[in-house]
Amino acid sequence: MILFGFPHCGDFSESYHAWSGELPASIRFHGVELLQTGLSMREVYSARWEQALEEAVLSISKQLVPNEEYVFVGHCWGSLLAFEVSHRLMGAGLREPSHLFLSGCSAPHLLRTRSEAGGLQKEDFGCQPVGEYRPPVDREQLRSRISVFTGNKDEHAMIDQLSEWSRYTSKICDVHVCEGNHAFWQADIIRWLQVAQTIVEREYMT
C-alpha cells in the first residue's frame, strides 16, 4: 500500500513528518513533490496550476506498482489537487486511488471565491480561489471512496455541505468533524491522519 501526501499552503514536510514516521511497514508514505513551492488556491486558473497537475501525475506514476493499492491524502489546496490528479490518472488509463482523504476543502462546485469570503481574515485568502472554480460537468465519477475532514469552525469547508463530495464518486463518501477552524490540522493532524490510517488498515490491508 502506498499513501501519497499532497502539499498544501504552509509547511508540507512538517505537516506529515511526525505521523508518517510511525506508519507500519506495510504502508509506504510518499510525499508528492512539486518543483513549484508556495502554491495555493490562488493558482487554480494559472499556468502554475496546470504545471502542478502535470508534476503530481508524473511523481505519482513513477511510484506506482502494478496491482498495489494506493490512496491520497490532502488538505485545502492539496485536497483539490488530489481530486484533479485522480481524474488525470483515470483519463490516462491508470488505476485510480482506492481512497481520497480530503481535508479542509469544500466540494468543487461549492468552493467560495475571494469576493464571497468577506468575513475571512486576509491571511486566509490563499485558501480561496480568485474566480469561480467549476470542474467539467460531463466527466465520469471517480471510483475512489472519499473521506472528508473538517474543523467544526472551518469557514472554508462547512460541515453541512461536505456530503456534496458524494456526487463525485460512485463509492462511499463519509464526513469526519474535528475540533477547530481551517487550521485544525496543525493542532490535530496526528488524530485525523490516524483516522485515515485506521481506515486504510481496516479496508485495504486485511
Rank of each mutant, 00 (worst) to 15 (best):
S46V: 04
S86H: 02
F83Y: 12
P7Y: 11
M41F: 10
C105F: 01
I190S: 08
E116I: 12
Q51N: 15
K122C: 13
T169I: 00
Y45E: 15
P97I: 04
P24M: 05
G126R: 12
F83T: 02
V177W: 01
S59M: 08
G180M: 01
E140T: 04
D11S: 14
E50G: 11
E69P: 04
T113P: 05
R28V: 10
E84C: 08
K153V: 11
R191A: 08
I146M: 09
M158N: 08
L39R: 09
W49R: 03
L120N: 08
A18N: 14
E155N: 11
D154S: 03
V57H: 03
S20N: 06
D174W: 03
H17C: 13
M90V: 10
W192I: 11
R48C: 08
W185T: 02
G180A: 07
H182C: 04
H182N: 11
P24Q: 05
R114L: 11
G31C: 03
V200R: 00
S144N: 00
P66F: 07
S163W: 11
P135M: 12
G78D: 05
Y204W: 15
V195R: 03
E43R: 02
V175Q: 06
I199K: 12
V200F: 00
H75A: 05
R48S: 14
Q51T: 15
V175D: 06
Q194D: 12
I60Y: 00
W185L: 10
S170K: 13
W192A: 05
Q161V: 02
S13Q: 11
L39N: 06
F4V: 03
G5V: 05
L102V: 01
R139F: 11
M90E: 09
R112K: 06
I2A: 12
A52V: 07
K122I: 15
Y168Q: 01
A18I: 05
E33P: 01
S115Q: 15
S13A: 09
I172H: 07
E123Q: 13
F72K: 02
C105Q: 11
T113Y: 05
W19D: 06
G151P: 12
D138K: 14
H109K: 09
I146Q: 01
G151N: 13
Q121M: 15
E69H: 08
Y204P: 07
H176C: 07
L89F: 07
F101E: 03
E14D: 13
C127L: 14
F4P: 00
Q194K: 05
G21S: 00
